[in-house]
């Protein structure tokens, strides 16, 4: 069936969504996401280093290489971001493709923390949530993964099916927070 094609589609239109008071909401391109569950196996750290140049992150942390990222993703679970896992990782962990399961939105700017304070119970002060900190938490009742990616930047991930709601909630919170600037 030569005429057959399936078109890939991000849950959200990629690109800039809004920018208010220097704070932006942006949908980045989809990246490969793979869940790594080592179980009792000890070899994941070494294999990750060898094949992807990444160290295994501590709970609540992420590690980076030039091309990839490893995210702590819960109890005995990691998320490999940005690259397809090397085949030999299957020897030291259970791999599950999650690339289509999560939607990612970037929130960056001076109001980012205040916007998140309206949607999420996490303590996002520098001391509690420094650069490269990550947490599984909630954003307005949605199970989420939140990662600090820059001084004022946060990467927010929710299930793909809820991406629309996430974007709506972020826009609304940003608009209301920004409206306070002129009080």
């Amino acid at each position: 069936m030569a005429d057959l094609t399936l078109t890939a589609q991000n849950a959200l239109p990629q690109g800039d969504v809004a920018e208010v008071c220097g704070t932006s909401i942006r949908v980045p391109p989809m990246r490969p996401l793979t869940s790594l569950m080592p179980g009792a196996s000890q070899g994941l750290g070494q294999a990750l280093k060898k094949h992807h140049g990444l160290t295994l992150p501590e709970p609540g942390q992420r590690t980076l290489s030039d091309t990839a990222e490893c995210l702590w993703f819960g109890h005995r679970q990691y998320l490999l971001v940005g690259v397809r896992p090397a085949d030999s990782l299957t020897e030291v962990a259970t791999l599950t493709d999650q690339s289509d399961a999560w939607s990612t939105v970037l929130l960056d700017g001076p109001l980012a923390r205040d916007v998140l304070a309206r949607l999420c119970p996490l303590d996002l002060r520098d001391a509690a949530f420094p650069m490269h900190a990550t947490a599984r938490s909630e954003i307005r009742h949605m199970m989420a993964c939140i990662t600090r990616v820059s001084a004022d930047g946060f990467r927010l991930m929710v299930f793909r099916s809820m991406a629309d709601t996430l974007l709506h909630d972020l826009r609304e919170a940003l608009a209301m927070r920004a409206a306070r600037e002129n009080l």
Binding site: G39, Q77, T94, Q98, D100, F159
Partner: peptide
């Protein structure tokens, strides 16, 4: 040795 993950959203 059991490893669980939801793949509801993946498929």
């Amino acid at each position: 040795d059991v490893r669980l993950i939801s793949v509801t959203e993946q498929w």
